[in-house]
């Protein structure tokens, strides 16, 4: 099932409008607050990055299209806070209790910010299945380009690659599988590869015969050719 966020190759979006190199990082103050609130809530530990990406993708196509970038972030965050029972619907309506929350002790403190941002959240893992593909090998991207575990679930396999022939460029290591991790099904780490596709294998009217697109794809997204 294609969702609105999976827009690679789509027609009709018009020109890209560059910005000055020295344009403000945050166009509006609330953009900065939206980013900061989202990162701070992530530190509560109630979800992972795949769950939060999926929350944005689950906005209705209508909302996804009409919301600006940080509106998507904040809407998805509100949805997630209720879904994970951190907040209630009454809270969002301003009718909730004002007492300290049970998770308050986990709240990100100013003095911890630098450490948390510097530490990051690596996605590589020990173990998992052994790599079955080697650099140079021809592969095909899975058809359909859907989550194989959960109907309509999160996946990082873009629709535009479905069924296309590509070539393994490099092995990145073994990484957490978003299709599983976004749904509480565990990290299910798998070998992750950079796979190169000729533009002419992806598009009916490529701009140039030698152009390529490279995607990072998990082992279960690929079939041998």
């Amino acid at each position: 099932m294609t969702r609105v966020h999976d827009m690679g190759g789509r027609f009709g979006d018009g020109p890209v409008v560059p910005e000055a190199e020295d344009a403000p990082v945050f166009d509006q103050d609330w953009h900065a607050r939206a980013l900061a609130v989202t990162l701070a809530c992530g530190a509560l530990g109630q979800w992972n990055i795949d769950v939060s990406r999926h929350a944005r993708e689950r906005l209705t196509p209508k909302d996804y299209t009409r919301f600006s970038y940080y509106e998507k972030w904040i809407a998805a965050l509100a949805d997630l806070l209720v879904e994970k029972r951190v907040l209630t619907q009454e809270d969002l309506q301003g009718q909730g209790a004002e007492e300290l929350h049970a998770l308050a002790e986990r709240a990100l403190k100013a003095e911890a910010v630098a450490g948390v941002l510097a530490k990051g959240g690596p996605a590589d893992r020990e173990g998992g299945p052994a790599p079955v593909f080697t650099p140079g090998q021809a592969v095909r991207a899975r058809v359909p380009a859907d989550n194989a575990l959960v109907s309509g679930g999160h996946t990082r396999l873009p629709h535009y690659t479905a069924g296309a022939r590509g070539y393994i460029l490099r092995l990145h290591g073994t990484h957490v599988l978003p299709d599983s991790n976004a749904h509480g099904l565990g990290e299910a780490p798998e070998p992750l590869y950079a796979v190169r596709f000729f533009a002419r294998e992806l598009w009916a009217h490529p701009e140039h015969p030698d152009d390529e697109v490279v995607l990072d794809l998990w082992q279960s997204y690929l079939e041998p050719l």
Binding site: F26, W30, A32, R33, A34, L35, A36, V37, L39, A40, C41, L44, Y70, I74, L77, A78, V86, L87, D91, L92, G94, G96, A97, E98, E99, L100, H101, L103, A104, A107, L108, K109, A110, A112, V113, A114, L117
Partner: peptide
């Protein structure tokens, strides 16, 4: 954004000083 920030701050789930630090 302001409403959500206010609700979360009242419950002690976010620290406005931490938001300033992130920004």
């Amino acid at each position: 954004v302001k409403a959500l920030e206010t609700i979360l701050t009242q419950k002690g789930l976010i620290d406005p000083a931490a938001l300033d630090e992130i920004i």
